[in-house]
Each structure stands twice: as C-alpha cells, then as structure tokens.
Design a protein around this nucleic acid. Structure first.
Lengths: 250, 250
DNA sequence: ATCATTGATTTCTCTAGAGAAGTGCATCAC
DNA sequence: GTGATGCACTTCTCTAGAGAAATCAATGAT
C-alpha cells in the first residue's frame, strides 16, 4: 500500500477538546469561567458520558481546566510569582518593565509551615557533594496567600553545623546563611540545576496540585569562596505559581 | 455530623496505578520495560476495560509510561541533556562530578532543521523590550540523535539587523552573536525567564511529545554592555530531555 | 436572623460490550 | 533467502447505563 495521503480526521473527543481549548486560549472563556460539563456536552453533541469526560480530561491534563466535583469544570488561572536566581545582578536597569511574562513582582509574604529538622544518613548524591555521610536536614513548606507553593529540603554536613542554630527550628536573624557565615563558611557561589516533570503523589498532596500541573525541581548547591560545598537544597515548586529569573554576564 | 475520621479508600483504578508506579519508581520495572496492558489488568483484577485504561492513563499522564498503539505500554526513560546558562561561571571546579542529577555531559551533536526566517510586526511584549515595532524572526528546531528536543524563536530589531547575515539562513562563523558583535552590539548580559507548563498542541506535534511530558519555556533577552536589548529568544524545551544549570555568585 | 434539611445538579467511578486501527510474528509462496 | 500474507494481540474509540459522592441553593424549623 502507498502512504495514505488522507489525514484521518481526529476522534470526536479530540475535536471537542480542540474547540474548548480554542475558546480558552482565544479569551472567549476567561479565568475562572465555567466550561460546559459532562451533561451539557452529552446533550450538545449526542455522545456518551465517557466520551464527554474524555474530552474534558484532555484539557484538565493540559492544565487549562480544573474540575470541581459536584460543581463544574472551570478555566484555570495562571498568576505566577517571580523568583530571582541572582538578586545582585537582576537589580539592574534591564529589570524594570522589561519582563516577557507577566507576574506579580515579588514582595508577596511567604509563610512557612511544616518545619521538620532531622539528623540523617545522606543519600548517595548528597553525601558525595557535601563530602559527608551524615547530614542535618531541614524540610519546610512555603505558602503564599494560604496556598502552598513550594517544598524545600536542605542538607548540611553534620560535622559542620552540629550544635548550631541550624539544627534548631529558629535559626535566628539572617537565617541559615548568616549562621554559616558565623562558622566562617559563608556561601559565595551557587549552582542551581533546574528540571520540570509531573509531580509525584506526595508532592501532589503537599502542594495541593490539580491534574495537569507540572512541578519545577531545583537542586541548589551553595559553595564557600574556597569552593567547599556547605548546603544542598532540593526544592519543588508548583510550576503554575512561578517564573524563575536568572541574570548573567558573558 | 462530625468530620469523618475514616479516610475513604481510594478507587480501584488508583490502587492499581499506585502499585504500578511503585514498581517503576522502585526499579522493579526499568526503562523500556513493558507494563501489564489493558487485557492483563482486566484479567488480573477482574475489572472492565475502561477501568484498566484509567489506571494506565494515570501513569501516562504522569510521564512515567508511554503507550505504543498495537504494541503495549512501556516504562518511560529519562536521559537529559545538560544546558548551561552561564558557561563562564560553570566551568569551575565545583562543576566536576558535583551534579545532583545524572545527565549526559553535553557535547552531544545538535542538528537544526526547519529554519525559517521572516520579517514581521512584533507582538506587544517583544516590541516593548526591543523598542522596535518591526523585527526579524528566526525560527528553528533542534534535534539530538534524530529526536526533536527544542524549538527556538529569535527576534531582532529590524532596523539594526537589516541587510546583515542575521536575515539569511547562513549566519556565518560564530553565528548571530558574532554578527551582532560586528555591528558593535555584542551581547554582554543575558536575562532568562524560566517557566514550566504542559505543551500546546503544536508544540506536542513539533517536539513529538508523549502525553505527560511538560515543556520548559525559556524567554531570553540579550543586552549589550550599554544595556540595549538586541535579541529576544523564546525557547521551548522538551522537559524530559533537559536539565538546566545556572551558576552565580552572591 | 440562624441553622439544619432536602433536593437538584454535577463530577466521579465502574460495568459490559463492540469494532477500528496499528504492531509484530509466523507462515507460505516464490 | 525474500517478500507477501494472514493472524493474534495490542491500544484506541465509543455506546449505554447505573449508583456514589460532593456542591449549591432553596426551603423550613427554631
């Protein structure tokens, strides 16, 4: 057989999904508006319930819509926070009014819940970087406007921070970086590795993520001026809540 | 009524998905291994086809599995490329063997297909940043090992680059940045904004993305030493193919 | 006015079954 | 050996229907 030159027309559920997506992206349906539900689609197109659900699930898994059980399916909103990698550099002229994507200029108040501090045996990658088999681990969750947006797990070499405020809930003024400075190990250089992926179940729960929302995973390593690694911080961000900004010369 | 203290046990499809996920994350099922299919799950658990499909769709939308029509459902592999923000800084001691996530050290050969160069009226955000209503636009797609991994759309102020090699397919040795240097507008500073989201349909097609794969959207602005914006580059990366690395002092 | 109840509406879960369409392997003709 | 054919198996699409569970507004009792 020769290659069929006829593009097979897409299945019903996909055509419906395409239509609805178009309505969302074009702005016909705005943030928070309600989409036609299962019953409405069944009636409008004369299709079975499963087919209507399949159409809606496409948009839900694309992160464009959010289902509310017992209520309806709604257009999802995107209003991110801007997170700066290098504060020093980004505070230059090229920052003001020059952003590509709209975002709330920071300054939104964080709250921290679920602090958890522990001494543990480090997993392989962390032990290698910190050159320390045992580590103190600080786990926290950050919320903005009462909604959780970020998980953070910090690791410190046990021998270095033993007995300091870093092993206690209240780290004092300036936080952990100030305490590392007190120890003569002030961070001077950072490396951040950034990935994006779909969340694991426990991340979905802790960040209260709707379907179709990826997470941004950041692995940050802090080094002293001498090049000694003093912290490994693994962060998980709700991708719908963040725009990361990095500035650099070259 | 009081708050029900009984956690309602999860539905069947979710329990099955949890089991399979566990098998994948624990390493029982490795990259490329085949998962039990619809028919196997129907038989094993005595459930309807739709329920078995729903269980598998959970993993597919999480990006852990990839369905191959007519063949089976397989465990997805993750073998990312490392992309450096600031080459200069990351080429220091703290780079060697200090990565958190495994990745192919770069050097993998890129190929560029689908080059497309055009003079256009800039959209609002780009016009504002470049301070130019008209722009030259270079669209390209990058592939590694024959698989598309990145889309890139570069904008240049029309008045600046008119008549130069930047408006032609072959930009000559050193690429567009060398040409901007020839014009006395060598880029000296970069700002990158990073987001993650689920792909739009045309991105899914052009990057050949399976379901459950987010994209990383990078908006990069290049500035001269004088602070003049000379390029806006919007990139879309297959999130399963990349780890971004940023290095900075502070 | 406030609170509890009821009922309509909505999404969610699942069953049972049918046919279309793509894959991959074994078999057969040459 | 080589290529074509057929068949088993797989995922994909869709129908029809049922009950559970959550939401929301209106109604009624206090």
């Amino acid at each position: 057989m020769q290659q069929s030159p006829v593009p097979p027309d897409p299945p019903i559920y996909r055509r419906i999904a395409d239509r609805l997506r178009e309505a969302i992206l074009s702005g016909d349906l705005r943030d928070g508006d309600r989409l036609p539900g299962e019953n409405a689609l069944m009636a409008e197109y004369g299709i079975a319930r499963a087919t209507a659900r399949q159409a809606l699930s496409v948009l839900i898994n694309e992160g464009l819509a959010v289902p509310k059980r017992g209520s309806g399916v709604y257009v999802r909103l995107f209003r991110p926070i801007r997170r700066h990698g290098s504060r020093r550099l980004s505070r230059r002229q090229w920052e003001r009014g020059q952003a590509i994507w709209d975002s709330d200029t920071e300054g939104r108040p964080y709250t921290v819940d679920d602090v958890n501090i522990d001494r543990e045996v480090a997993e392989e990658a962390v032990a290698r970087i910190l050159d320390s088999a045992e580590v103190w681990v600080r786990r926290r969750r950050y919320s903005v406007d009462g909604r959780p947006v970020q998980l953070s797990v910090s690791h410190f070499p046990a021998a270095l921070v033993e007995g300091t405020a870093i092993t206690r809930e209240d780290t004092g003024p300036g936080g952990v970086y100030a305490r590392l400075g007190d120890l003569g190990h002030a961070p001077a250089h950072f490396t951040e590795e950034v990935r994006a992926r779909m969340p694991h179940p426990h991340e979905t729960v802790q960040l209260d993520l709707p379907a179709g929302t990826p997470v941004i995973a950041i692995g940050r390593v802090a080094y002293t001026a001498a090049g000694v690694a003093v912290e490994v911080n693994e962060m998980i961000l709700d991708a719908a809540s963040y725009v990361l900004q990095y500035d650099f010369d070259s």
